[in-house]
Deep mutational scan, measured.
Amino acid sequence: VNVKKLKVSELKEELKKRRLSDKGLKAELMERLQAALDDEE
């Protein structure tokens, strides 16, 4: 998943799939999702 190419709605969906908070600004969502993806690898 390329975090930078996702829309806010898509970021929120990806975060929900991982049971993460989907609250906050786009930058925060991107950071949170990227951290989750880094952990998965």
Rank of each mutant, 00 (worst) to 15 (best):
V1I: 15
V1A: 04
V1E: 02
N2V: 10
N2Q: 10
N2F: 10
N2K: 10
N2P: 07
N2R: 08
V3M: 02
V3A: 07
V3R: 02
V3P: 11
K4Q: 14
K4H: 10
K4G: 14
K4D: 12
K4P: 11
K4A: 13
K4C: 14
K4F: 09
K4T: 12
K5A: 13
K5N: 15
K5V: 11
K5C: 11
K5R: 12
K5E: 13
K5M: 12
L6A: 06
L6R: 00
L6W: 05
L6M: 13
L6Q: 03
L6T: 00
K7P: 09
K7Y: 12
K7W: 04
K7F: 03
K7Q: 03
K7L: 13
K7N: 07
K7R: 10
K7V: 10
V8I: 00
V8S: 11
V8E: 15
S9Q: 10
S9N: 01
S9T: 11
S9D: 10
S9K: 09
E10A: 07
E10S: 05
E10I: 04
E10T: 08
E10W: 01
E10Y: 01
E10P: 00
E10Q: 14
L11D: 04
L11P: 01
L11Q: 02
L11G: 01
L11Y: 02
K12S: 06
K12T: 00
K12D: 03
K12P: 01
K12A: 07
E13L: 09
E13C: 00
E13I: 14
E13D: 07
E13M: 10
E13Y: 05
E13A: 12
E13S: 12
E14S: 04
E14V: 01
E14P: 01
E14Q: 09
E14G: 02
E14K: 00
L15V: 01
L15W: 00
K16I: 11
K16S: 10
K16H: 09
K16G: 10
K16D: 12
K16A: 14
K16L: 11
K16F: 05
K17G: 06
K17I: 03
K17A: 14
K17C: 07
K17H: 07
K17V: 10
R18V: 02
R18Q: 02
R18M: 03
R18I: 03
R19N: 15
R19L: 11
R19C: 06
R19P: 03
R19Y: 02
R19S: 13
L20S: 03
L20Y: 05
L20K: 08
S21E: 09
S21F: 01
S21R: 03
D22E: 09
D22H: 08
D22T: 14
D22M: 05
D22W: 07
D22L: 11
D22A: 13
D22Y: 06
K23I: 12
K23G: 11
K23A: 15
K23Q: 15
K23M: 12
K23S: 15
K23F: 13
G24F: 01
G24P: 02
G24Q: 03
G24N: 00
G24A: 01
L25D: 15
L25Q: 15
L25M: 14
L25K: 15
L25Y: 09
L25P: 15
L25F: 07
L25N: 15
K26S: 13
K26T: 14
K26I: 08
K26Q: 15
K26P: 15
K26A: 13
K26D: 13
A27W: 06
A27M: 12
A27D: 13
A27E: 14
A27L: 11
E28R: 03
E28I: 03
E28V: 09
E28Y: 00
E28M: 04
E28T: 10
E28A: 10
E28G: 04
E28W: 00
L29R: 08
L29H: 08
L29F: 01
L29C: 05
L29M: 07
L29Q: 14
L29N: 04
L29W: 01
M30P: 04
M30R: 06
M30I: 04
M30Q: 05
M30C: 03
M30V: 05
M30A: 07
E31R: 06
E31P: 12
E31N: 15
E31W: 09
L33E: 09
L33C: 02
L33Q: 11
L33K: 09
L33M: 05
L33F: 05
L33S: 07
Q34M: 06
Q34T: 08
Q34L: 06
Q34W: 04
Q34K: 07
Q34I: 06
Q34V: 05
Q34F: 05
Q34D: 08
Q34E: 10
A35M: 09
A35Q: 14
A35P: 05
A35N: 07
A35I: 08
A35T: 14
A36R: 07
A36L: 01
A36Y: 06
A36V: 06
A36Q: 07
A36D: 06
L37E: 13
L37M: 03
L37D: 01
L37N: 04
L37R: 08
D38T: 08
D38K: 13
D38M: 11
D39C: 09
D39S: 12
D39L: 07
D39P: 07
D39Q: 13
D39V: 08
D39W: 06
E40P: 10
E40Y: 02
E40G: 10
E40T: 09
E41L: 06
E41K: 10
E41D: 09
E41Q: 14
E41P: 12
E41G: 15
E41I: 07
